[in-house]
């Protein structure tokens, strides 16, 4: 078995008295698409956020593409390692978080130019190419305020791709979208998966999981309860908690 792109070991995080992550272990192989599901408050978003230190984990180790950080106070040395990891890890937020004072193109160029010091003409060529890939060529000179939610999320994906990440973490990328705009974003994500991008996706989109995920992870109360191929998990869940979650999803449609 080849070296995993992501290896999370015994990750723990508390918010006050509440233990949000109770020792998570996670390996993601090169080119693998992992979908994380679970009821709200199960810790799935916190897991993603801890992986890039947007939340500082209390315990555990994170290794992404060969770069390892252990949990602990944010010293200068640790921050440098964290930044190194962040540079190689794309992150797509539920609420897009595009930079509103920049055009779509500038949003995509920002990371390469400011962080990676790529010369501007080169960064611009690459950004144009990526925006073309997510289908936004004719919108690239618009500011986010003039784009629809779906378009904004596609710009955000292009912005993550511009850093040539080893893995992209998606934190409920379609939850903030109007239903009719969900499709265009999932389509871009499908295409990425086909190209072999390593992805960890927190989502409630069962269709997407069934079609694209190599592996589905069920989380509940800060722990992984079950994992396996989408088909197995959805049609033949072993755990009671998985069954309960799936039946709720079924009754209400998409939460």
């Amino acid at each position: 078995m080849s070296e995993p792109v992501v290896q999370v070991t015994n990750l723990r995080k508390r918010f006050g008295p509440h233990e949000v992550l109770r020792g998570i272990n996670l390996r993601v192989a090169q080119g693998e698409v992992v979908v994380i599901m679970g009821p709200s408050g199960s810790g799935k978003s916190t897991l993603l956020r801890c992986m890039t230190f947007l939340e500082v984990p209390d315990e555990g180790t994170i290794c992404i593409d060969g770069r390892t950080v252990t949990a602990g106070p944010l010293t200068k040395e640790r921050m440098a390692k964290v930044r190194e990891i962040r540079r190689h890890t794309g992150f797509v937020f539920q609420s897009f978080n595009l930079f509103p004072h920049m055009t779509a193109l500038e949003n995509v160029m920002e990371g390469p130019v400011t962080v990676l010091r790529v010369p501007k003409p080169e960064a611009r060529r690459r950004a144009e190419e990526l925006l073309g890939k997510v289908g936004l060529t004719e919108h690239m000179h618009k500011h986010p305020s003039r784009l629809s939610g779906g378009q904004q999320q596609r710009v955000a994906i292009a912005r993550a791709l511009a850093m040539s990440p080893s893995v992209i973490l998606f934190d409920e990328p379609t939850s903030a979208l109007d239903p009719e705009l969900v499709g265009e974003v999932l389509q871009v994500m499908r295409a990425l998966a086909r190209e072999g991008m390593t992805m960890v996706v927190v989502t409630h989109e069962m269709g997407f999981a069934r079609e694209v995920a190599d592996r589905v992870i069920m989380m509940d109360a800060g722990a992984i309860v079950e994992e396996g191929p989408a088909a197995d998990i959805f049609t033949n869940p072993k755990e009671e908690r998985t069954r309960r979650f799936l039946s709720r999803m079924g009754r209400h449609g998409l939460p």
Partner: peptide, 15 residues
Amino acid sequence: GQMEAAYTLGMTYWT
């Protein structure tokens, strides 16, 4: 979210 988005690109606080 703006600060977080900047962080995920690998920016330092001051950048």
